[in-house]
């Protein structure tokens, strides 16, 4: 479980940030409403999945709470979670 979870979290965190980047790019440039319609819920789902996955990590509450940060929460959790592990090695 400890091996699969960070990989899943990385996928969800990347999707969370990437979908928002596409949404904002769409808003700033061509502004196709259907892109917003589809990617909006995708981004919302990724946000919640990142929170749910982060909560299962064996990490301090402070690290897990970073998942609540919009847009880049998942990436922040992964960065904060990796740091002490890297230091142990």
């Amino acid at each position: 479980m400890c091996e699969v979870l960070p990989r899943r979290l990385r996928i969800a965190a990347t999707a969370e940030t990437a979908s928002l980047v596409v949404l904002l790019t769409n808003l700033a440039t061509v502004h196709v409403p259907s892109i917003a319609d589809v990617l909006g819920p995708v981004h919302g789902s990724c946000y919640l999945v990142v929170i749910a996955l982060s909560w299962q990590l064996p990490a301090p509450a402070r690290v897990r709470a970073l998942s609540l940060v919009p847009a880049i929460g998942g990436l922040l959790v992964l960065r904060a979670w990796r740091r002490p592990v890297a230091g142990d090695r």
Binding site: D37, P41, G44, S45, L48, A52
Partner: peptide, 21 residues
């Protein structure tokens, strides 16, 4: 139960989007 419960989070999100539309 655990894995699909996380994936199921998409259901209320898309449901909200449909209801809003």
């Amino acid at each position: 139960t655990g894995v699909y419960a996380v994936l199921a989070l998409a259901v209320p999100v898309f449901g909200l989007a449909v209801a809003a539309q």
